[in-house]
Computed example of a mutant assay.
Amino acid sequence: MPWWPVHPDHIGSLLGGLMLELQPPTRHDWTVQDKVYGKLSMEPFEAGFALTVGIAYRRALLSAIHGAAPTWVKIENVLHEFSHLPGVMEDTLDIMMNLRKVVFTLHVNRPKILRLRAQGGSVVKASDFETDADIEVLTPDVVLATLDKDGVLEMEVCVERGRGYVSAEKREPEALPINAILLDADFSPVKRVNFHVEPVTEGRERLVLEVWTDGSVSPATAVGEASRILEDHFDLLMDFPEISPQEEAAERDDVRPRTELNENLFRNVDELELSVRASNCLKTANIRTIADLVQKSEAELLKTKNFGKKSLNEIKTILGEMSLSLGMRLDPEELERLRSQYERAYEA
């Protein structure tokens, strides 16, 4: 059989055809980009991959981007959401709904309390909040309430960072002020995401992604954060080092945190300065020591008869003062080791 020499310029194309490597997209372009809307195109994708990537981006953008939202409000002379303030046209529920329309940018990673006081025949707007460098009101024209000449509105609002949608029923702040009302919090700055796939050439596709935000985060920033979130999820599966079962067990032992000696674990719950109701509930649940108590979750305690959130907050406060918390996982062997260590220290 005759042998035909191959020209060097053709070697690359031949190898590329043999390896059949998947070609990732190499170009992107923001065809529209402003503060609240962006349109991004990425290409070329191999057939089917544009749809896969579009679905992943849409999911991450709608559920995982961090933002700021009001989480509770305290209105002077209002005891609950069904109260009505004299001289104020709106009901308390209307004011709460109006608060949720306000868009905030929080520049710190801690909750921020905003205060507002208005009186006498005026329209109260979001711009009336007293702000500083830590927080910005992006929708100052949102109307919160309308006052007549004798009306007075004084309130405090807590703005926090978070992600997704968290209903008031699922929130349980540690130190909620008296008469404060929890709000449903929509933290997501991304309001809408669309995408579609267009053919480019034979076997190649273009992904067109549209993103709408509330202005607290730009579409480009939101897409960048979504990319990092997706990358973090796939990083775990980038490499599978081969380790022996013995090495894996040793690694788990090294990572597992050891419980520090806390002598309070071995005290009887009767020694705690609890209310009569909370103390009786713990006896009903057969919880004798603080070690028994800290291994219970909040949900487990709330299932105990006559045990409510007031008793729960009371117990959480007392445990916090001891550097303990509910939901701790105490290994029985580790607990016995601590007990022996405590008894030896006590005898010494």
Rank of each mutant, 00 (worst) to 15 (best):
P5F: 11
P8G: 06
P8F: 02
H10Y: 10
S13N: 11
R27A: 13
D29I: 11
K39T: 08
M42G: 00
M42Q: 02
M42L: 15
G48T: 11
F49G: 02
F49W: 09
A50M: 07
A50G: 15
V53Y: 00
G54N: 13
G54Q: 04
A56M: 04
L62N: 03
T71P: 03
I75C: 01
E76N: 07
E81L: 07
F104G: 00
R115P: 00
R117A: 14
A118K: 14
G120E: 14
V123G: 01
V123I: 10
D128K: 07
I135A: 04
V137W: 03
D148R: 00
D148M: 01
E156V: 09
V157K: 09
C158V: 09
E160V: 03
R161V: 01
E169F: 01
E172C: 05
I181F: 07
D184S: 03
P189R: 05
H196I: 07
R206N: 04
V211C: 05
T213I: 08
A220W: 08
A222D: 04
V223D: 00
I229P: 04
I229M: 03
L230M: 15
F240K: 12
S244F: 07
P245V: 09
E247V: 14
P257T: 09
P257W: 04
R258P: 00
L261K: 01
E263R: 15
L265Q: 03
F266V: 06
E273A: 11
L274N: 08
S275M: 13
S279D: 01
T289Q: 03
T289N: 08
D292V: 01
Q295Y: 06
E300C: 08
L312S: 05
L326M: 04
R329M: 12
L330Y: 12
L330Q: 09
P332E: 12
E333D: 15
E334Q: 15
L335I: 06
E336V: 04
Q341M: 13
